[in-house]
């Protein structure tokens, strides 16, 4: 019972943290601060993964998202010298409409899923090796998509290089 409430408290704290820094991503003026808040959000989500006993996804989340993708964002912001706080003035009605729209979307999603499932999200029974079972599924059942994702990466790399070149003759 004690364990239960500790876990619920951890979930709530991490969720609060994630939502707060997610809002800061949107409302901070400086893009560099936005990136840093997004990294905080990713760490909070990683904590939720660990709470769900999904360690592999947690580690990959830190390495890929907080490590690689956010560094890419920071590089682009620094290279383009965008770290100034000037945002072109925008119609305040549009901002108001954006807030109303996303609030209504949240209302609809939460309202429609309210009666969804009272089930308990039990994590995997910790007896076996979670990495082992994940790898077994990944390299047998999902082997073809795994290989196709390699082709996807190659295509993305070629596309990024082609776009980044100064002029294409």
């Amino acid at each position: 019972m004690m364990q239960d409430s500790i876990q619920k408290f951890t979930f709530l704290a991490l969720g609060f943290f994630a939502v707060l820094s997610g809002l800061m991503v949107v409302f901070t003026k400086n893009p560099v601060h936005s990136v840093l808040y997004l990294v905080l959000t990713f760490f909070a989500i990683t904590g939720e993964y660990i709470l769900l006993n999904a360690q592999f996804i947690a580690i990959v989340n830190v390495i890929v998202y907080a490590g690689a993708i956010m560094v890419l964002f920071l590089f682009v912001i620094m290279l383009l010298n965008l770290n100034k706080e000037t945002e072109p003035h925008k119609n305040p009605y549009l901002k108001f409409a954006a807030v109303i729209t996303s609030g209504l979307l949240l209302l609809v999603i939460v309202g429609s899923l309210k009666a969804a499932d009272k089930a308990i999200a039990t994590p995997y029974p910790n007896t076996g090796d979670i990495m082992q079972s994940l790898a077994k599924v990944l390299f047998t059942q999902f082997l073809v998509p795994f290989e196709v994702s390699a082709v996807l990466f190659l295509a993305a790399m070629v596309g990024a290089v082609m776009l980044g070149k100064k002029e294409i003759k």
Binding site: Q7, V19, I45, E48, L113, D117, K118, A119, P123
Partner: peptide, 20 residues
């Protein structure tokens, strides 16, 4: 020993993050 966080909480948290 294993927890019980209701699935609804996860759904709500993901919905909030998605709407942000």
């Amino acid at each position: 020993v294993i927890q019980g966080i209701p699935l609804n909480w996860y759904i709500t948290l993901s919905s909030i993050l998605f709407c942000i």
